[in-house]
């Protein structure tokens, strides 16, 4: 009886079941290699564990102590401050510049677009390990390209590596990261079926109406997605901050992004638990912001 019921249920929902099965392999992969290690590190954040040293063997469960320490930690808040500035400005710049490039690549009739596409892609195509070399040759105060250019126009030299170091960081991050928006948005524009516009034209829609009713709804999702992914990447990644900082935090903390702070805590001060707590805070921030964005975008 029961079996029959189940059979019937399966028959009725076969389509849905097949659909849900499609997602299983990807979920399995993500679960094994991302969730398990992540859950493991969340567990670390409730201990006083270190990777090596006394605390590597004789660690103990300390509950929320890391989190309480973190709230009272001056450096954590300084680092939070830097991170907010960095992420906000980076988000705007990476999106705007990427969007401009994407529009250019889909709309423009300029000759040699393949060549232009190749040039636009260069920052993400050259090895990440070379970015520090490239940018040091740009920003060095005495010999760097930027100050040389400023000097040849008779402008005062700028302190790229100290006074304006956060700005430099944003500049580098935008330079290396705008291609993400460009690639994604260019393909989003390309995938709008042109019949839609033809239909709209038949109804005599104005340019603005066409954008409002056709273009925008169709690029809304990639657009939101782009913003979410850029934010996630910026808050996660400290490659460029590391290149201005090194093994230990800079005393002025101008480059100490939260992610870099977590790294320094875990590897320079050997406080793995604390580093993981910082990491978990980052994760919670991203989680809340992503849910909010999805909610407001009604996706």
């Amino acid at each position: 009886m029961k079996i029959l019921k189940i059979k019937a249920w399966i028959r009725d929902n076969l389509d849905q079941i097949v659909l849900s099965l499609l997602i299983v392999p990807a979920l399995a992969l993500i679960f094994t290699f991302q969730f398990i290690p992540a859950a493991w590190t969340i567990w670390f954040s409730f201990t006083d564990m270190a990777l090596i040293g006394k605390k590597a063997l004789n660690w103990s469960f300390i509950g929320f102590k890391n989190y309480l320490d973190l709230i009272t930690d001056v450096y954590f808040w300084r680092s939070m401050n830097v991170t907010i500035q960095y992420c906000a400005v980076s988000l705007v710049l990476r999106f705007t510049i990427g969007m401009l490039a994407a529009l250019f690549m889909t709309l423009s009739k300029v000759k040699g677009k393949i060549f232009i596409a190749a040039v636009f892609l260069l920052p993400s195509a050259i090895p990440g390990i070379m970015h520090p070399y490239v940018w040091i040759s740009m920003l060095e105060p005495n010999y760097g390209t930027l100050n040389t250019i400023l000097g040849s126009f008779g402008l005062p030299r700028q302190s790229w590596t100290y006074g304006a170091v956060t700005e430099s960081l944003i500049m580098i991050n935008t330079w290396a990261g705008y291609t993400f928006t460009m690639i994604l948005m260019a393909s989003a524009f390309k995938s709008i079926p042109r019949e839609y516009y033809e239909v709209a034209e038949v109804y005599g829609a104005s340019r603005w109406q066409k954008f409002r009713k056709v273009t925008f709804p169709l690029i809304k999702f990639p657009l939101i997605l782009c913003l979410i992914l850029i934010f996630k990447e910026d808050i996660d990644d400290f490659t460029y901050a590391y290149m201005f900082t090194g093994e230990s935090p800079r005393p002025d903390f101008k480059t100490e992004l939260l992610s870099l702070y977590a790294y320094h805590k875990a590897f320079h001060y050997y406080e793995l638990g604390f580093g993981c707590a910082v990491g978990f805070i980052i994760a919670i921030i991203v989680f809340v912001l992503t849910l909010l964005q999805l909610k407001f975008a009604r996706l």
Partner: peptide
């Protein structure tokens, strides 16, 4: 959102 966040912990940790 959970899928998106799967790699959220700092990679070095």
């Amino acid at each position: 959102t959970l899928i998106l966040l799967s790699g959220f912990m700092p990679r070095m940790a």
